[in-house]
Design a protein around this nucleic acid. Structure first.
Lengths: 119, 119
DNA sequence: ATAACATATGAACACATGAGCATACGTTGA
DNA sequence: TCAACGTATGCTCATGTGTTCATATGTTAT
C-alpha cells in the first residue's frame, strides 16, 4: 500500500500523510504564540526600533529622532514591545530609557538578517 | 563630556548616542525586507502551514484538511508563500504538491519555537 | 502649588490583510 | 471534445494594525 493511497475517491486526501501530519503538527495555541512572536518583528518600524535598541539604550525622544517618528508613535510601539517583554526600561527623571530585554529576540533578529543577506 | 550630553535644551536628544545609532542602524530597505520576512511567519495559519510542510510534502487538498481550511484559503496562503519563495511545488497530474523551499525558513521557524518554549 | 517637559494612552482614521465566493485554468479520462 | 476534478485567482468584506491628534500621567525645578 502506497503512502499516497486515497481515503475516498470523492476527495483527494492522502489519508496516511494527512494522519501523520495531523498527529505531529504544532498545536493551535503554540502556533498562535509563534505567530505573535514573529508578527512583532513583522513591521519595518519595529524592526528599526529593535535594531536601534540593539545598538544602544535610548530614550523615547531619541528613538523618535532615530526613526523619524512622532513621540506618540514611538511610545505606542514601545508599549507593544513592552507587552511582549521584548524591551525593558528604566526611568531616570523625566526620561525613560529603553533597551532590549531578550537575548533571544536579538538572535532571532540576527538570523533573519543573515537570511535576507545570504540569499 | 558625557555621552548623554544634550544637543539643545528644548529637546531631550542625546546627540552622541543618536548620531552613533543613526550611523549604524539598518537601512530602510533592509528593514522592510526583514519585516516582510517575519510578517510571513506572523500568522497562525501560515505557521501551521509551514510546520505541516516541514513535516511532509502535501497537496493543496491535504493542507485544507490538515489546517481545517477551505481550498481557496489554502491556495491564497500558498501563493503568498510562493511569492516569497518559501515553498516550492511540483505538479503531478491534477494535483500540486507543496514543500518547503528554504532551509533558512526552517531554521528561523525552529528558533522561534525554541524561544516560546524556552521562556 | 505650579509651570515645564518627557512620556503614556485613548479614540479616530486610513490602510493592510485573511478568508469566502464565484469563477477561470490546467489536467485527465472517456 | 467534453465532463470531472484539483488548483489558482479576482473581487469583496470584515477585521486587524500603525499613525495621528488630543489629552492624561508623572517628574523636576521654581
Amino acid at each position: 500500500m502506497d503512502e499516497r493511497d486515497f481515503l475516498c475517491d470523492s476527495e483527494c486526501i492522502h489519508a496516511l500523510a494527512v494522519r501523520e501530519v495531523l498527529e505531529n503538527i504544532i498545536q493551535d495555541a503554540k502556533a498562535k504564540k509563534l505567530a505573535t512572536l514573529f508578527r512583532a518583528l513583522g513591521d519595518p518600524t519595529r524592526v528599526k526600533l529593535i535594531h536601534a535598541l540593539k545598538l544602544k539604550e535610548l530614550c523615547v525622544c531619541d528613538l523618535g529622532v532615530v526613526l523619524n517618528l512622532s513621540q506618540s508613535a514611538v511610545s505606542h510601539q514601545l508599549r507593544y514591545l513592552r507587552n511582549l517583554n521584548f524591551v525593558k526600561y528604566r526611568r531616570q527623571g523625566k526620561m525613560v530609557y529603553y533597551s532590549l530585554d531578550d537575548e533571544h529576540i536579538h538572535e532571532l533578529f540576527q538570523q533573519g538578517l543573515d537570511h535576507i543577506e545570504h540569499v
